[in-house]
């Protein structure tokens, strides 16, 4: 065997031995136990401290408030949404007190009007809605109520009702357009209310010769809209003029 090969062989074997030895020493203990990672990392991540205690923790001490909230419109809103992370408070209830936001700026984070919010979600214009008065003056944050308690159609069709309430059709009762049999309340899917089935129905108010207040937009019922029923293009619960 040529001299070069033996010499190089020695050098390479030495390097390989050093590599393997160093590697044995340096690979972390728990590496590869569960997968191609340090199993101990999972434990240290799992051991990180909590900031948000979770609503169950609050309920243990603040039972009356929790019960009130649990049957209110805020039943799905957990305590720490408004009061902030409270794990420290749970650990030391006497010394650490979570904040309770009372200023007007806070509630509009959810309830301020924003066009991108789902229609039907209760929203107000923070500037025009009872200026300067803290929200708590009229609404109990643990059991907030809208001005009208849902009932009748609204009890089930809340989203439509809220939407209609801010539309040009706000003052029209549902039964103006829908004929709902009483049995609909008992078996809503088998006995459905009807919808206007002719263009003339909307024409009662919107036709050019209709006897209705003059601010109501008018169309020529016989030619407008190429024979579609009105509600196939317009949404009567929130009609737009365009």
């Amino acid at each position: 065997m040529p001299q070069q090969v033996t010499r190089l062989g020695i050098a390479f074997v030495a390097l390989a031995v050093v590599f393997v030895a160093v590697r044995q020493k340096l690979v972390p203990d728990t590496f590869g136990e569960a997968g191609h990672y340090r199993a101990a990392a999972v434990d240290s991540i799992a051991a990180q401290p909590l900031q948000y205690a979770g609503h169950e923790a609050c309920t243990m001490c603040h039972r009356p408030i929790a019960e009130k909230r649990s049957v209110s419109n805020h039943s799905g809103v957990s305590c720490e949404v408004c009061h902030g992370p409270a794990a420290e408070h749970v650990a030391a209830p006497g010394s650490v007190k979570p904040p309770a936001p009372r200023e007007r700026g806070f509630c509009p984070l959810c309830h301020g009007y924003n066009a991108s919010r789902p229609s039907g979600f209760p929203q107000i214009d923070p500037v025009a809605h009872n200026p300067m008065v803290p929200c708590m003056t009229c609404h109990d944050p643990h059991a907030p109520e809208p001005p009208v308690i849902p009932g009748a159609c609204r009890a089930c069709h809340g989203q439509i009702a809220s939407q209609k309430a801010v539309s040009h059709h706000a003052t029209l009762p549902c039964l103006t357009c829908h004929d709902a049999p009483d049995e609909h309340k008992a078996s809503p899917r088998t006995l459905r209310p009807d919808k206007p089935s002719s263009r003339d129905f909307c024409g009662t108010c919107h036709a050019e010769d209709a006897i209705s207040p003059s601010h109501i937009p008018r169309v020529d019922v016989s030619t407008h809209g190429e024979g579609y029923l009105c509600w196939q293009c317009h949404y009567p619960h929130h009609p737009e003029a365009e």
């Binding site: 805020h74 957990s78 949404v81 992370p85 959810c110």
Partner: peptide, 8 residues
């Protein structure tokens, strides 16, 4: 935490 505080 994000699920805990999601109000809706």
């Amino acid at each position: 935490a994000c699920v805990e505080v999601c109000p809706t």
